[in-house]
């Protein structure tokens, strides 16, 4: 009886917390498809706000994808070999390097963005292009890729596989491409999902680094929250959810599968 009571109490509490997280999202989604949010859903359902957002902000969505995939490409090309090097080399220096590249997770994006502006703000061409935002995103997401790949390396005995391939005559480059990378695929995928998700939603850095001609989706969102009617802002948020939630679900499934092993 008492156990039953405790169970119900905990369940209600957990449901309340879930409601706190989910209800606002549902409000936002419903507001995005309501003719007039103030009058409520009875005013009718419409996609007009979504189309309006598309007209106004399609460019930001496109740029966000461009930057997210460019970030992914850079973190893959730079991060995967680096993870291999850090794992293989090991020791104190590798830990220090890992510590340094992880700093951007701890240091607020605002500070990193300021640092980038103070250092490279003078290079006008660079400052005005989307590549400037890209640098920020690369620095911010790199540790996730490197750590994700290193996590896999520590579970599959990569050193012995490397030695095995070497004993069969494969050169270091061939070993890396033919044996190391294929066996790091789970970590690379998990890291890639993380990088794309984070890049698509990144605001703290991007707000400082963007220019009027280089607006990403979260910048557009902030813009719409400040200046558009609630329905438009909600519709925009809805589009963001549609983009980001599949990624989150994929990430969660991935984590579950890893845990299930």
């Amino acid at each position: 009886m008492r156990d039953r009571l405790i169970f119900t109490g905990q369940l209600l509490f957990t449901l309340t917390v879930a409601a706190f997280l989910v209800v606002p999202a549902i409000l936002s989604i419903s507001a995005g498809v309501t003719v007039n949010y103030f009058r409520g859903i009875s005013s009718g359902v419409t996609l007009q706000w979504v189309f309006q957002v598309w007209d106004l902000y399609a460019g930001t969505i496109l740029l966000s994808f461009v930057i997210a995939f460019a970030t992914l490409a850079v973190t893959l090309l730079v991060g995967v070999p680096a993870a291999y090097a850090l794992h293989t080399h090991g020791g104190r220096w590798s830990r220090i390097v890992e510590e340094v590249i992880t700093l951007p997770i701890a240091i607020p994006g605002l500070a990193i963005a300021l640092a980038l502006i103070l250092t490279y703000g003078g290079f006008g061409e660079f400052r005005r292009s989307w590549l400037f935002i890209l640098t920020g995103h690369v620095i911010f997401t790199m540790p996730f890729m490197v750590r994700s790949v290193m996590a896999v390396f520590s579970t599959v005995d990569i050193k012995t596989l490397d030695e095995g391939a070497a004993s069969l005559g494969a050169s270091p480059v061939r070993r890396f491409l033919g044996v190391i990378v294929p066996n790091a695929v789970p970590g690379i995928l998990a890291g890639a999902l993380m990088v794309v998700t984070l890049s698509l939603g990144e605001f703290n850095l991007t707000w400082m680094l963007h220019t009027p001609s280089t607006k990403t989706l979260p910048i557009g969102l902030a813009d719409s929250y400040a200046s558009m009617r609630l329905e438009v802002a909600s519709a925009y948020t809805l589009i963001f959810f549609v983009m980001i939630i599949p990624l989150l679900v994929a990430m969660q499934m991935f984590a579950d599968r890893e845990q299930g092993r």
Binding site: L21, L198, P218, I244
Partner: peptide, 10 residues
């Protein structure tokens, strides 16, 4: 857990 990667603005 779904709001895990929602940006602060959202």
């Amino acid at each position: 857990t779904f709001p895990l990667a929602f940006p602060g603005v959202v």
